[in-house]
Design a protein around this nucleic acid. Sequence first.
DNA 1: ATAATTTATGGAACGCGTTTCAGGTCAAGA
DNA 2: TCTTGACCTGAAACGCGTTCCATAAATTAT
Lengths: 324, 324
Amino acid sequence: MANIREIARLAGVSVSTVSRVLNHHPYVSPDKREAVLKTIRELDYSPNINAVHLSRGKTNMVGIVLPTINHPYFSELLEGIAEEAMKHNIQLVLFQTGYHQEKEFEALEQLRGHLIDGVIFASRAIPFDSLLKYKSAGPMVLCEDSDQDDFPSISIKHVAAFNLGLEYLISKGHKRIAICLGRLEGTNSQKRQKAYEEKMKMIGQKVQEEWILGKCLMIQDGKSVVNRFLQMKEKPTAFLVGNDQVAAGIFTESVKQGLAVPEDVAILSFDNHPISEIMGITTIEIPTKQLGSYAFNSFIKRSSDSTYAEKIALPFTLIQRQSV
Amino acid sequence: MANIREIARLAGVSVSTVSRVLNHHPYVSPDKREAVLKTIRELDYSPNINAVHLSRGKTNMVGIVLPTINHPYFSELLEGIAEEAMKHNIQLVLFQTGYHQEKEFEALEQLRGHLIDGVIFASRAIPFDSLLKYKSAGPMVLCEDSDQDDFPSISIKHVAAFNLGLEYLISKGHKRIAICLGRLEGTNSQKRQKAYEEKMKMIGQKVQEEWILGKCLMIQDGKSVVNRFLQMKEKPTAFLVGNDQVAAGIFTESVKQGLAVPEDVAILSFDNHPISEIMGITTIEIPTKQLGSYAFNSFIKRSSDSTYAEKIALPFTLIQRQSV
DNA sequence: ATAATTTATGGAACGCGTTTCAGGTCAAGA
DNA sequence: TCTTGACCTGAAACGCGTTCCATAAATTAT
């Protein structure tokens, strides 16, 4: 295919002039501009973007690191990012990690290699130290409730939100509370678990080990939660659930098993995704999509100011419905 | 940052040799290889990927065109693509279009500009003719039930699946059937609508205009469907619903409004996503994720054989549950 | 022992657009 | 009239890795 030199030759101008036309520089006389455009049209030319990227030293692409796309939380977050990216004319390159560290490192290597201008971590599995090593490679933004001053981060205060949930359940007379978390080994889950144990101690409630349920990520997982519930000797009266999907699963399966919600078992979850509204599940709203747009905007700020490292905590709200 | 020439200089070899080391070519003596690797380590060098892309003339990236990420159908499809892409070490660049044609053209322009090696259309809004113009720009795959021989395409036979749904409802004694579709103007919806009208005519059932409901995309839309249902003078006895999300919304809202499913209103939908299983909704399974992996594999085939244009139709299966 | 390979290595061209610099023209201000 | 600055244009260098070609040494085959 044609290149800029050929266009220049055929249009009878220099490559610089062609480049100027391509980039809408002023300082090109109308007749030369027209000649160039005509030649471009005739040859059906379009610039090689890799060459552009190489010489400009940037690509207007940013990498998005997330464990899985196929989960409402992440796809909503991603949508928030994508909408904002579109406004800035920036392309997204996906790094679906499945929580594997190598995949995250891959994204960082691509950053070092200038394939992407920066990285947004929708979730992170690699240690923070590793991140620091790439600090100079380009702007990075974290979507986590972290206590560091090296990178901008966006999140909600998970522990506070979790406590709000616990307190609300307690205020409704529940003491025997079980919790459903995602990956128990995750930092967030650890923090939540700790908050839970403290709160339970505070109200003088002994915690049963079987009340802490892990691997609750998707709607299907709600089913096994109910099954486990039915087997428990000491039954909790309420579930605090990490996300709406699982809560919806628990809700539906409970009803199917003849349990009344909230009478036999109360359910309180997080996110306020559409499913919770339609099912009338009491939930703590997390502005997931906003999280995404804020993350992207932080990325933009960080791009032009490499010392920008604001930590933004978005608000969460309890939404009372009928499941508690 | 350092480049390959500097590495060469410091390691006392030529750039070709450095390049060979980088690309694991044989024909490099162990001592030179070691010298190069040492220098690379010392300078913390990593190759500029844009330069690699430019000189190789390919990028190992493919563009994915989809209207929205935040919908189970598309995020599952995307996951199928992403998993397969990972195996082939290919990066995905997202083009979220919101059904806007310009965005699709943007993807095609990036293809022409060699930013991506190809494009997978998870959905398409631009006319087919436009697509043809880019045929030579690189491999493209369509996820649609189309009757063309220019590109590989993956889909299920939507009309047949729709007919299966209608026939099943009829076999269960329903004649007064309403349908819920997505964007009525879409090709798929048009085809389904036609199939519906024919089938109704065949069983001698007059079609009420208000039985054809559009804009049914997400779970929330189920609510308005029920509201509209309640207002209808001529009430249908069954709904054939374009996707599980909407069906779940209809189901839940119906129950909330005191309607019995399937006694007062039967529900049959498409997809067999987890939500339908947990809620016991009868559905026609669409192997969404497989659709994605097949699409990617077709892309790979098309990449090495530009005449490959197989049309693959994946099977669909009726899954009987309790909503009909 | 001689011809034919295989193995090693470097030089230079290539892919292609951007940008800097230098040189020139022309009109407005002093 | 002279200066200054805006406007226009092209040559050449730059960003950087890949790859083809040529050369030479070391093996292997005959």
